[in-house]
Amino acid sequence: MPASRCRQVREMSTQGHSAATTIADRDTWHLAEEDDHGHDHGGGATYIGFWIYLMSDALIFASLFAMFGVVSTSYAGGPAPREIFELPLVALNTALLLASSITFGEAMPHMEAGRVGPTRIWLALTGLLGAAFVCVELYEFSNLIAEGAGPQRSAFLSAFFALVGTHGAHVTVGLIWIVVSLVQMSRHGLSEDMKRRVMCLSMFWHFLDIIWIGVFTFVYLWGVLR
């Protein structure tokens, strides 16, 4: 009995060992492939990792949208969307953000070709449009708060400020990232590392524009229709 048990344990440990070897092999194979990618395209596992980050960020926004959907008519005697939302301002903001997505798209072929000058110009233009977007949003927020429609007025307004504010905070972080990229590009040019970073930045920026589609449709337009 003890002998057979012993053999069993040894077998198990052998199995465990072989499993570990397999995993290690797989890791090595994957790392090797990543290296390959790194040399060829300056990317590797970064893109899938950043993609997963974007998807998890989408889930944060999904919970904020869900919260907004649940309390979107809980005005608590406060103002309704129709009374406080200024659609021309929202249209301007939407145009600014969409334009910034397009200018970033303009920068990408220049970046892939390694042309530092045009890449920086298009990226700077993207940053300016993004900064204008944040300014208009802050102007809107300050107007709302001045009118007494601040986040503490009703559940609807709390959810509104949380959702739109979180998006605005993301855009602000994107702006900081753009400035950092511009500085890095002026110092180091467009190395493979730099291209990878700008690629991730472009994904982040386009992602924020996609979230904004949900915001202007479900928060502003839908709210005014109600």
């Binding site: 929202v90 249209a91 939407t94 145009a95 969409l98 997505s101 202007f216 449709t217 337009l221 005014v224």
Partner: peptide
């Protein structure tokens, strides 16, 4: 993207 942004704003505004 431009068409699909302009259309909903036009419909509502």
């Amino acid at each position: 993207a431009i068409v699909l942004t302009v259309l909903p704003f036009w419909l509502v505004m």
